[in-house]
Design a protein around this nucleic acid. Sequence first.
DNA 1: CCGCAAATACTCGGAATCGAGTGATCGGAG
DNA 2: CTCCGATCACTCGATTCCGAGTATTTGCGG
Lengths: 185, 185
Amino acid sequence: MKNPLGMAVLGLLLESPLHPHAMAATLRERGMDRSFKVTTGSLYDVVRALMREGWIEARETVKVGARPERTIYGLTEVGREEFTRWVDRLVREPQPEFPKFLSAVSYLGALGPAGAVEALRERAERLRASLEEMRGSHRDALEQVPRLFVVEVEYAVRMAEAELGWVEEIIGDVESGRLPWPEES
Amino acid sequence: MKNPLGMAVLGLLLESPLHPHAMAATLRERGMDRSFKVTTGSLYDVVRALMREGWIEARETVKVGARPERTIYGLTEVGREEFTRWVDRLVREPQPEFPKFLSAVSYLGALGPAGAVEALRERAERLRASLEEMRGSHRDALEQVPRLFVVEVEYAVRMAEAELGWVEEIIGDVESGRLPWPEES
DNA sequence: CCGCAAATACTCGGAATCGAGTGATCGGAG
DNA sequence: CTCCGATCACTCGATTCCGAGTATTTGCGG
Protein backbone atom coordinates (compact mmCIF):
# COMPACT_ATOMS: atom_id res chain seq x y z
CA MET A 1 0.00 0.00 0.00
CA LYS A 2 2.01 2.92 -1.27
CA ASN A 3 -0.44 4.67 -3.53
CA PRO A 4 -1.70 7.85 -1.79
CA LEU A 5 -5.02 7.36 -3.52
CA GLY A 6 -5.57 4.64 -0.96
CA MET A 7 -5.35 7.27 1.74
CA ALA A 8 -7.92 9.38 -0.06
CA VAL A 9 -10.29 6.41 -0.22
CA LEU A 10 -9.95 5.75 3.49
CA GLY A 11 -10.50 9.43 4.19
CA LEU A 12 -13.71 9.41 2.23
CA LEU A 13 -15.06 6.22 3.76
CA LEU A 14 -14.52 7.82 7.17
CA GLU A 15 -17.59 9.87 6.39
CA SER A 16 -19.77 7.22 4.80
CA PRO A 17 -19.64 4.01 2.75
CA LEU A 18 -19.38 4.50 -0.99
CA HIS A 19 -18.88 2.67 -4.23
CA PRO A 20 -15.72 3.36 -6.28
CA HIS A 21 -17.38 5.49 -8.90
CA ALA A 22 -18.90 7.71 -6.22
CA MET A 23 -15.48 8.05 -4.60
CA ALA A 24 -13.97 9.39 -7.79
CA ALA A 25 -16.89 11.74 -8.30
CA THR A 26 -16.70 13.10 -4.74
CA LEU A 27 -12.94 13.57 -4.89
CA ARG A 28 -13.28 15.56 -8.08
CA GLU A 29 -16.20 17.59 -6.77
CA ARG A 30 -14.15 18.68 -3.79
CA GLY A 31 -11.15 19.51 -5.91
CA MET A 32 -9.12 16.83 -4.18
CA ASP A 33 -7.93 15.72 -7.59
CA ARG A 34 -5.36 18.47 -7.21
CA SER A 35 -3.82 16.58 -4.31
CA PHE A 36 -4.33 13.03 -5.49
CA LYS A 37 -3.90 11.55 -8.91
CA VAL A 38 -7.31 10.01 -9.32
CA THR A 39 -7.56 7.80 -12.38
CA THR A 40 -10.36 5.27 -12.60
CA GLY A 41 -8.10 2.37 -13.41
CA SER A 42 -5.89 2.88 -10.39
CA LEU A 43 -8.89 3.49 -8.17
CA TYR A 44 -10.26 -0.01 -8.64
CA ASP A 45 -6.81 -1.49 -8.12
CA VAL A 46 -6.39 0.49 -4.92
CA VAL A 47 -9.77 -0.57 -3.60
CA ARG A 48 -8.89 -4.20 -4.24
CA ALA A 49 -5.61 -3.73 -2.38
CA LEU A 50 -7.36 -2.13 0.59
CA MET A 51 -9.71 -5.11 0.69
CA ARG A 52 -6.76 -7.50 0.69
CA GLU A 53 -5.29 -5.66 3.66
CA GLY A 54 -8.63 -5.77 5.45
CA TRP A 55 -8.81 -2.00 5.83
CA ILE A 56 -12.14 -1.78 4.02
CA GLU A 57 -14.94 -4.29 3.50
CA ALA A 58 -17.73 -4.78 0.99
CA ARG A 59 -20.98 -3.71 2.63
CA GLU A 60 -23.50 -4.54 -0.07
CA THR A 61 -23.84 -5.04 -3.76
CA VAL A 62 -26.68 -3.14 -5.31
CA LYS A 63 -28.03 -3.67 -8.76
CA VAL A 64 -30.00 -0.86 -10.34
CA GLY A 65 -31.53 -1.70 -13.67
CA ALA A 66 -29.22 -3.62 -15.97
CA ARG A 67 -26.17 -1.51 -15.17
CA PRO A 68 -23.03 -3.01 -13.74
CA GLU A 69 -23.40 -3.72 -10.05
CA ARG A 70 -22.27 -1.18 -7.55
CA THR A 71 -20.34 -2.62 -4.66
CA ILE A 72 -20.41 -0.36 -1.66
CA TYR A 73 -17.36 -0.37 0.59
CA GLY A 74 -17.05 0.71 4.19
CA LEU A 75 -14.17 1.24 6.60
CA THR A 76 -13.14 -1.44 9.08
CA GLU A 77 -11.84 -0.67 12.55
CA VAL A 78 -8.32 -1.47 11.38
CA GLY A 79 -8.79 0.77 8.38
CA ARG A 80 -9.73 3.68 10.58
CA GLU A 81 -6.52 3.27 12.56
CA GLU A 82 -4.33 2.73 9.53
CA PHE A 83 -5.68 5.89 7.97
CA THR A 84 -4.44 8.04 10.85
CA ARG A 85 -1.13 6.21 10.91
CA TRP A 86 -0.80 6.82 7.19
CA VAL A 87 -1.43 10.55 7.39
CA ASP A 88 0.87 10.87 10.37
CA ARG A 89 3.69 9.09 8.60
CA LEU A 90 3.47 11.20 5.45
CA VAL A 91 3.37 14.41 7.47
CA ARG A 92 6.34 13.41 9.64
CA GLU A 93 8.69 12.02 7.01
CA PRO A 94 9.64 14.09 3.99
CA GLN A 95 9.82 11.71 1.04
CA PRO A 96 12.32 12.17 -1.75
CA GLU A 97 10.35 13.59 -4.65
CA PHE A 98 11.32 14.05 -8.27
CA PRO A 99 9.32 16.87 -9.82
CA LYS A 100 9.94 17.12 -13.55
CA PHE A 101 11.05 20.72 -13.29
CA LEU A 102 13.89 19.68 -11.01
CA SER A 103 15.07 17.25 -13.70
CA ALA A 104 14.83 19.88 -16.38
CA VAL A 105 16.65 22.53 -14.39
CA SER A 106 19.55 20.10 -14.02
CA TYR A 107 20.09 20.49 -17.74
CA LEU A 108 19.16 24.14 -18.07
CA GLY A 109 22.55 24.69 -19.66
CA ALA A 110 21.43 22.89 -22.80
CA LEU A 111 19.08 25.73 -23.71
CA GLY A 112 21.77 28.41 -23.86
CA PRO A 113 21.33 31.71 -22.03
CA ALA A 114 18.76 33.16 -24.45
CA GLY A 115 16.77 29.95 -24.74
CA ALA A 116 16.74 29.45 -20.99
CA VAL A 117 15.43 32.94 -20.34
CA GLU A 118 12.78 32.46 -23.00
CA ALA A 119 11.54 29.19 -21.55
CA LEU A 120 11.68 30.42 -17.96
CA ARG A 121 9.64 33.48 -18.94
CA GLU A 122 6.92 31.27 -20.28
CA ARG A 123 6.94 29.14 -17.17
CA ALA A 124 6.65 32.23 -15.01
CA GLU A 125 3.65 33.33 -17.03
CA ARG A 126 1.93 30.00 -16.61
CA LEU A 127 2.74 29.89 -12.92
CA ARG A 128 1.15 33.29 -12.43
CA ALA A 129 -2.01 32.09 -14.17
CA SER A 130 -2.21 28.93 -12.12
CA LEU A 131 -1.60 30.90 -8.92
CA GLU A 132 -4.42 33.25 -9.82
CA GLU A 133 -6.74 30.31 -10.23
CA MET A 134 -5.69 28.63 -6.99
CA ARG A 135 -6.14 31.82 -5.00
CA GLY A 136 -9.61 32.24 -6.47
CA SER A 137 -10.79 28.75 -5.65
CA HIS A 138 -9.30 29.07 -2.19
CA ARG A 139 -11.29 32.24 -1.54
CA ASP A 140 -14.46 30.55 -2.79
CA ALA A 141 -13.90 27.44 -0.74
CA LEU A 142 -13.28 29.43 2.45
CA GLU A 143 -16.83 30.69 2.31
CA GLN A 144 -18.16 27.15 2.34
CA VAL A 145 -15.94 25.25 4.76
CA PRO A 146 -13.58 25.89 7.68
CA ARG A 147 -9.99 26.80 6.89
CA LEU A 148 -8.70 23.40 8.05
CA PHE A 149 -10.28 21.77 5.03
CA VAL A 150 -8.42 24.02 2.62
CA VAL A 151 -4.93 24.16 4.11
CA GLU A 152 -3.60 22.00 1.31
CA VAL A 153 -4.45 24.76 -1.12
CA GLU A 154 -2.55 27.25 1.04
CA TYR A 155 0.42 24.92 0.88
CA ALA A 156 0.20 24.56 -2.87
CA VAL A 157 -0.04 28.33 -3.28
CA ARG A 158 2.96 28.87 -1.08
CA MET A 159 5.06 26.41 -3.02
CA ALA A 160 4.01 27.87 -6.37
CA GLU A 161 4.93 31.34 -5.12
CA ALA A 162 8.35 30.12 -4.07
CA GLU A 163 8.93 28.54 -7.46
CA LEU A 164 7.81 31.67 -9.27
CA GLY A 165 10.12 33.76 -7.13
CA TRP A 166 13.05 31.52 -7.93
CA VAL A 167 12.31 31.47 -11.65
CA GLU A 168 12.15 35.27 -11.77
CA GLU A 169 15.38 35.54 -9.86
CA ILE A 170 17.18 33.17 -12.19
CA ILE A 171 15.94 35.10 -15.22
CA GLY A 172 17.45 38.20 -13.65
CA ASP A 173 20.70 36.41 -12.88
CA VAL A 174 21.12 35.17 -16.41
CA GLU A 175 20.40 38.57 -17.91
CA SER A 176 22.71 40.40 -15.56
CA GLY A 177 25.50 37.88 -16.00
CA ARG A 178 25.39 36.73 -12.39
CA LEU A 179 24.71 33.26 -13.80
CA PRO A 180 27.25 32.99 -16.63
CA TRP A 181 27.27 30.29 -19.30
CA PRO A 182 30.62 28.48 -19.29
CA GLU A 183 32.13 28.81 -22.84
CA GLU A 184 30.53 27.22 -25.95
CA SER A 185 26.92 26.01 -26.14
CA MET B 1 9.09 8.49 -23.65
CA LYS B 2 7.85 10.08 -20.47
CA ASN B 3 10.43 8.93 -17.96
CA PRO B 4 12.75 11.85 -17.08
CA LEU B 5 15.55 9.34 -16.64
CA GLY B 6 15.59 9.23 -20.42
CA MET B 7 16.49 12.90 -20.42
CA ALA B 8 19.33 12.24 -18.00
CA VAL B 9 20.68 9.51 -20.27
CA LEU B 10 20.61 11.80 -23.30
CA GLY B 11 22.29 14.51 -21.26
CA LEU B 12 25.10 12.18 -20.31
CA LEU B 13 25.65 10.82 -23.79
CA LEU B 14 26.00 14.39 -24.97
CA GLU B 15 29.43 14.29 -23.36
CA SER B 16 30.55 10.82 -24.40
CA PRO B 17 29.23 7.34 -25.22
CA LEU B 18 28.66 5.10 -22.22
CA HIS B 19 27.25 1.77 -21.19
CA PRO B 20 24.21 1.69 -18.88
CA HIS B 21 26.07 0.76 -15.75
CA ALA B 22 28.49 3.64 -16.24
CA MET B 23 25.53 5.99 -16.72
CA ALA B 24 24.10 5.03 -13.36
CA ALA B 25 27.50 5.37 -11.72
CA THR B 26 28.14 8.80 -13.21
CA LEU B 27 24.71 10.08 -12.30
CA ARG B 28 25.18 9.03 -8.71
CA GLU B 29 28.71 10.42 -8.54
CA ARG B 30 27.45 13.81 -9.62
CA GLY B 31 24.59 13.72 -7.17
CA MET B 32 22.09 13.80 -10.02
CA ASP B 33 20.22 11.02 -8.26
CA ARG B 34 18.63 13.82 -6.27
CA SER B 35 16.98 15.10 -9.42
CA PHE B 36 16.28 11.82 -11.17
CA LYS B 37 15.00 8.58 -9.78
CA VAL B 38 17.75 6.33 -11.01
CA THR B 39 16.97 2.65 -10.48
CA THR B 40 18.87 0.05 -12.45
CA GLY B 41 15.79 -1.75 -13.65
CA SER B 42 14.23 1.37 -15.15
CA LEU B 43 17.53 2.44 -16.63
CA TYR B 44 17.75 -0.55 -18.94
CA ASP B 45 14.11 -0.14 -19.94
CA VAL B 46 14.69 3.51 -20.70
CA VAL B 47 17.76 2.77 -22.79
CA ARG B 48 15.78 0.24 -24.78
CA ALA B 49 13.03 2.81 -25.33
CA LEU B 50 15.53 5.42 -26.50
CA MET B 51 16.90 2.88 -28.96
CA ARG B 52 13.41 2.19 -30.27
CA GLU B 53 12.90 5.90 -30.84
CA GLY B 54 16.24 6.10 -32.59
CA TRP B 55 17.56 8.76 -30.22
CA ILE B 56 20.57 6.66 -29.23
CA GLU B 57 22.42 3.84 -30.98
CA ALA B 58 24.62 0.93 -29.93
CA ARG B 59 28.22 1.80 -30.73
CA GLU B 60 30.03 -1.37 -29.72
CA THR B 61 29.76 -4.37 -27.48
CA VAL B 62 32.81 -5.05 -25.40
CA LYS B 63 33.51 -8.19 -23.46
CA VAL B 64 36.02 -7.97 -20.63
CA GLY B 65 36.87 -11.23 -18.94
CA ALA B 66 33.88 -13.44 -18.26
CA ARG B 67 31.64 -10.60 -17.11
CA PRO B 68 28.40 -9.74 -18.85
CA GLU B 69 28.99 -7.77 -22.01
CA ARG B 70 28.93 -4.02 -21.93
CA THR B 71 27.04 -2.41 -24.76
CA ILE B 72 28.12 1.16 -25.29
CA TYR B 73 25.52 3.63 -26.51
CA GLY B 74 25.98 6.96 -28.23
CA LEU B 75 23.69 9.83 -29.16
CA THR B 76 22.24 10.15 -32.65
CA GLU B 77 21.66 13.47 -34.37
CA VAL B 78 17.93 13.15 -33.68
CA GLY B 79 18.66 12.34 -30.05
CA ARG B 80 20.68 15.50 -29.68
CA GLU B 81 17.76 17.58 -30.95
CA GLU B 82 15.17 15.75 -28.93
CA PHE B 83 17.16 16.31 -25.77
CA THR B 84 16.97 20.07 -26.12
CA ARG B 85 13.31 19.90 -27.03
CA TRP B 86 12.69 17.76 -23.96
CA VAL B 87 14.43 20.13 -21.55
CA ASP B 88 12.71 23.12 -23.12
CA ARG B 89 9.30 21.56 -22.77
CA LEU B 90 9.72 20.64 -19.13
CA VAL B 91 11.00 24.10 -18.28
CA ARG B 92 8.16 25.85 -20.13
CA GLU B 93 5.20 23.80 -18.98
CA PRO B 94 4.52 23.27 -15.29
CA GLN B 95 3.31 19.71 -14.90
CA PRO B 96 0.71 18.76 -12.32
CA GLU B 97 2.63 17.05 -9.53
CA PHE B 98 1.39 15.07 -6.56
CA PRO B 99 3.91 15.21 -3.74
CA LYS B 100 2.93 12.92 -0.87
CA PHE B 101 2.97 15.76 1.60
CA LEU B 102 0.26 17.53 -0.35
CA SER B 103 -1.91 14.41 -0.05
CA ALA B 104 -1.24 14.14 3.64
CA VAL B 105 -1.95 17.80 4.36
CA SER B 106 -5.36 17.34 2.75
CA TYR B 107 -6.24 15.12 5.69
CA LEU B 108 -4.33 16.96 8.38
CA GLY B 109 -7.59 17.18 10.31
CA ALA B 110 -7.43 13.47 11.08
CA LEU B 111 -4.50 13.99 13.44
CA GLY B 112 -6.28 16.38 15.77
CA PRO B 113 -4.67 19.68 16.77
CA ALA B 114 -2.11 18.17 19.14
CA GLY B 115 -1.19 15.30 16.83
CA ALA B 116 -0.85 17.62 13.86
CA VAL B 117 1.51 19.95 15.71
CA GLU B 118 3.54 16.99 16.90
CA ALA B 119 3.93 15.54 13.41
CA LEU B 120 4.61 18.91 11.80
CA ARG B 121 7.32 19.60 14.37
CA GLU B 122 9.10 16.43 13.42
CA ARG B 123 8.83 17.25 9.74
CA ALA B 124 10.28 20.69 10.39
CA GLU B 125 13.20 19.09 12.20
CA ARG B 126 13.90 16.74 9.33
CA LEU B 127 13.56 19.51 6.78
CA ARG B 128 16.13 21.59 8.66
CA ALA B 129 18.55 18.67 8.62
CA SER B 130 18.08 18.02 4.93
CA LEU B 131 18.47 21.72 4.18
CA GLU B 132 21.72 21.77 6.11
CA GLU B 133 23.00 18.91 4.03
CA MET B 134 21.93 20.42 0.72
CA ARG B 135 23.53 23.74 1.52
CA GLY B 136 26.75 21.96 2.41
CA SER B 137 26.96 19.95 -0.77
CA HIS B 138 26.06 23.05 -2.77
CA ARG B 139 28.97 24.96 -1.24
CA ASP B 140 31.33 22.07 -1.94
CA ALA B 141 30.14 21.69 -5.50
CA LEU B 142 30.52 25.38 -6.22
CA GLU B 143 34.26 25.06 -5.70
CA GLN B 144 34.48 22.43 -8.38
CA VAL B 145 32.12 23.54 -11.13
CA PRO B 146 30.45 26.71 -12.44
CA ARG B 147 27.21 27.78 -10.81
CA LEU B 148 25.15 26.78 -13.84
CA PHE B 149 25.78 23.13 -13.08
CA VAL B 150 24.37 23.42 -9.58
CA VAL B 151 21.29 25.58 -10.10
CA GLU B 152 19.05 22.61 -9.50
CA VAL B 153 20.34 22.44 -5.94
CA GLU B 154 19.55 26.11 -5.46
CA TYR B 155 16.03 25.36 -6.63
CA ALA B 156 15.67 22.41 -4.28
CA VAL B 157 16.95 24.48 -1.38
CA ARG B 158 14.53 27.28 -2.15
CA MET B 159 11.58 24.92 -2.26
CA ALA B 160 12.58 23.20 0.96
CA GLU B 161 12.89 26.58 2.66
CA ALA B 162 9.42 27.53 1.48
CA GLU B 163 7.99 24.30 2.82
CA LEU B 164 9.73 24.72 6.14
CA GLY B 165 8.41 28.25 6.41
CA TRP B 166 4.90 27.09 5.75
CA VAL B 167 5.11 24.23 8.23
CA GLU B 168 6.37 26.54 10.96
CA GLU B 169 3.62 29.01 10.23
CA ILE B 170 0.93 26.36 10.41
CA ILE B 171 2.29 25.11 13.72
CA GLY B 172 1.96 28.65 15.01
CA ASP B 173 -1.55 28.99 13.62
CA VAL B 174 -2.75 25.81 15.26
CA GLU B 175 -1.27 26.73 18.62
CA SER B 176 -2.64 30.25 18.56
CA GLY B 177 -6.08 29.14 17.45
CA ARG B 178 -5.85 30.92 14.11
CA LEU B 179 -6.39 27.48 12.55
CA PRO B 180 -9.23 26.06 14.66
CA TRP B 181 -10.37 22.42 14.61
CA PRO B 182 -14.06 22.24 13.73
CA GLU B 183 -15.82 20.37 16.61
CA GLU B 184 -15.10 16.72 17.52
CA SER B 185 -12.15 14.68 16.19
C1' DC C 1 48.32 -16.01 -0.84
C1' DC C 2 43.72 -16.63 1.06
C1' DG C 3 39.19 -15.10 1.78
C1' DC C 4 35.65 -11.72 1.60
C1' DA C 5 33.66 -7.34 0.83
C1' DA C 6 32.88 -4.16 -2.84
C1' DA C 7 32.29 -3.24 -7.49
C1' DT C 8 30.83 -4.74 -12.20
C1' DA C 9 27.06 -5.52 -15.34
C1' DC C 10 22.91 -6.91 -16.23
C1' DT C 11 18.25 -9.98 -16.23
C1' DC C 12 13.87 -11.20 -14.83
C1' DG C 13 9.29 -11.42 -13.43
C1' DG C 14 5.92 -9.68 -10.42
C1' DA C 15 3.53 -5.52 -9.36
C1' DA C 16 1.66 -1.04 -10.29
C1' DT C 17 -0.30 2.13 -13.53
C1' DC C 18 -3.52 3.87 -16.60
C1' DG C 19 -6.33 5.03 -20.53
C1' DA C 20 -9.23 3.34 -23.84
C1' DG C 21 -13.06 0.65 -24.37
C1' DT C 22 -17.84 -1.41 -23.15
C1' DG C 23 -22.45 -1.31 -22.71
C1' DA C 24 -26.18 0.15 -20.26
C1' DT C 25 -29.38 4.01 -18.69
C1' DC C 26 -31.14 8.67 -18.20
C1' DG C 27 -32.70 13.39 -19.51
C1' DG C 28 -34.46 16.34 -22.57
C1' DA C 29 -34.78 18.67 -27.31
C1' DG C 30 -37.60 18.38 -31.17
C1' DC D 1 -42.16 9.15 -28.54
C1' DT D 2 -37.64 8.73 -30.24
C1' DC D 3 -33.02 9.83 -30.89
C1' DC D 4 -28.57 11.48 -29.00
C1' DG D 5 -25.30 12.89 -26.03
C1' DA D 6 -24.04 12.71 -21.21
C1' DT D 7 -23.53 10.01 -17.28
C1' DC D 8 -22.94 5.65 -14.92
C1' DA D 9 -19.93 1.89 -13.47
C1' DC D 10 -16.60 -0.78 -14.38
C1' DT D 11 -13.04 -4.13 -17.04
C1' DC D 12 -9.06 -5.19 -19.56
C1' DG D 13 -4.64 -5.50 -21.30
C1' DA D 14 -0.61 -3.00 -22.82
C1' DT D 15 2.95 -0.65 -20.84
C1' DT D 16 6.04 0.80 -17.30
C1' DC D 17 8.49 0.30 -13.20
C1' DC D 18 11.63 -1.57 -10.15
C1' DG D 19 13.92 -4.41 -6.62
C1' DA D 20 15.83 -8.71 -5.82
C1' DG D 21 18.65 -11.88 -7.75
C1' DT D 22 22.90 -13.71 -10.49
C1' DA D 23 27.39 -14.29 -11.51
C1' DT D 24 31.91 -12.62 -12.13
C1' DT D 25 36.05 -9.96 -10.85
C1' DT D 26 38.87 -6.85 -8.47
C1' DG D 27 41.05 -4.99 -4.34
C1' DC D 28 43.10 -5.56 -0.06
C1' DG D 29 43.57 -6.63 5.01
C1' DG D 30 45.84 -9.97 7.57
